[in-house]
Design a protein around this nucleic acid. Structure first.
Lengths: 84, 84
DNA sequence: TTGATATATTGATGAATATCGATGAAGACC
DNA sequence: GGTCTTCATCGATATTCATCAATATATCAA
């Protein structure tokens, strides 16, 4: 659905995550934990919400997990805000 | 804030309201009540959420209230989904 | 195998939210 | 004035959500 994707952005922490991902291609989870002032499980929870919404995807390389935006999903949201 | 505007869209009913407003310039509250299958106070509540978020504004003409989108606010959301 | 580090999941709790019925406020019409 | 219609607000309730502590999983190194 569309609202479930907007719902994934209905939180300051998750907007901050998406902003960082829009700026840099890939971001490590550890960077989010360092940058946002929240416990690690909380960050992990927010990343899961964004993953479940299809807005981001993750790849694991060694011990680290890297997240990036899913451009089509972001485009879909942009489109929903346009007339038509 | 930005997330509070996304939060205003984090509900199917409110996405439907915004969709209708994007299609027609102005929509009467009574039309929302007729179209969406919810009680009138519930519609009124959702319209207030959108008003508080600055996404829509209302004008009263006689007994009826007409709602329309605030283009700048919608543009701000679109912009937040773009890089930069 | 043992230990250390990086993420994810689970469980609990307090706060926020969607919904409705009842009520209030304000205009239109007799 | 009195009544009807339209919309907003209030009060109550059930559900959802953000957060953390504790624990689990996974990878690497020694």
């Amino acid at each position: 659905m569309l609202a479930s994707r907007f719902k994934a952005l209905a939180d300051p922490t998750r907007v901050a995550i998406v902003n960082r991902l829009a700026a840099a291609d890939e971001v490590c989870v550890c960077d989010f934990v360092a940058a946002l002032d929240l416990a690690q499980p909380t960050i992990s929870h927010h990343l899961k919400v964004l993953r479940d919404a299809g807005l981001v995807e993750a790849s694991r390389r060694g011990t680290w997990a890297y997240y990036r935006l899913v451009p089509e999903a972001v485009d879909a949201l942009r489109g929903a805000l346009s007339a038509g």
